[in-house]
Simulated assay, not measured.
Amino acid sequence: MSVLVVIPARYASSRYPGKPLVELTGATGISKSLIQRSWEAALRVAGDVRVVVATDDERIRQAAEGFGADVVMTSETCRNGTERCAEAHEALGGEYEIVVNLQGDAPLTPHWFVEALIAQLADDPDASMATPVLRCDGRALNGFLEDRRAGRVGGTTAVFDARRHALYFSKEVIPFSAVTYGDEDPTPVFHHVGVYAYRPAALSAYPGWPEGELERLEGLEQLRFLENGHAVRCVEVESRGRQFWELNNPEDVLRIETMMSQMKAE
C-alpha cells in the first residue's frame, strides 16, 4: 500500500511566527530545526512511504531542501494542515492510497502511532480518516481538569462508538465523570493526538466543504469530516513510556528539549 506522509509547515503562525525553523537541541547536543526533527520522525515510519514537506514559504523550502527533504510548494490560502495535505497530494498526482498528515510541530510523534493509523484505516472501509487516541490515566485527566478550571485548554479529548468511529472531539473534557481516579487508574477519557491518515477521495473533497460551526467553535479541523457525514476511526495507541508534546508556543521549546534529553540519544 502506497503511503504519502505530508508535513505541513507555515511560517506565519499567529502564536509563534517562524516556528518551523526554531532550533531544538537533542540528547547528543546537536541542534536541528523543528521541521527537520519532524521530517526525521516521519522517516521512521515503516512501509512503502514517501515523506514530503508542504509549505507556502520560501525560507522553509530552502531549509528543508538543505537537509535533504522533498518539498511541495502550496498556496497561502490553505486554512489548515488538512487543506495543505490535500493540495500537496494533488500536486504529486493524487495517486497514493493513504495520505498521512504528520504535523510539523510534533517532532516527538512515535512512528508506531502512524503505522497503527495506516493499518486500521486500511482495515476499515467505512472510515474516511483515522486518528490516534490515548486513554488518560488519573494523573492526565486531573491535569486536563485543572487546566479547564484555570481557563486553559489542556488538550483535545474524543468520544467514539462501539466501532471506534468518532462521535465528537472537543477541547472540553468529555465524557463527564463524577468518579475520582487515582494517578495510575485508567479513566474513560481519551486524549486525542493530532495526527491524521486520510483516504484520498475524502481528503480531496475536504477543501470544498465549508467550515462548519462546530469546527469554527472548537478550532478542530477534523470536525469538518464529522459535520459532512464522514466516519473518523479513533485508533487507540500506547505511549510505551514515550513522552511527546506539540510545539505551539515559545515556552514549549524547553519542555520538548527536556523530553528529548530523556530519550535515547538521537
Rank of each mutant, 00 (worst) to 15 (best):
S2C: 05
L214V: 15
P250L: 14
R216S: 15
L220F: 13
V71Q: 02
K171H: 11
S204W: 03
I35R: 01
Q36E: 12
L145E: 15
P250Q: 10
Y16E: 10
E95I: 00
R148G: 03
R224P: 13
V49A: 05
A27L: 05
G18C: 06
A54Y: 11
R139G: 15
E87H: 05
V6S: 03
R84E: 10
A42D: 07
R163T: 13
R139H: 14
A64P: 03
F67H: 00
P175L: 09
P132L: 12
P107C: 01
T25P: 04
L226N: 10
R79I: 10
V100W: 00
N101L: 12
C136Q: 10
G68L: 00
L220E: 14
V49M: 08
T157I: 06
A69V: 00
V72F: 11
G151T: 04
D124M: 01
G208D: 12
E40M: 14
Y96C: 00
P207S: 14
V22E: 10
Q36N: 08
V72H: 08
I174H: 04
G212K: 08
Q222V: 15
L254A: 13
T157N: 04
V49H: 06
E211P: 00
V114Y: 04
L34P: 11
H192Q: 14
F244R: 11
V71A: 03
C78V: 14
R59A: 10
D56I: 10
V3W: 03
F160P: 02
F160K: 01
P20L: 06
S13D: 14
D56M: 08
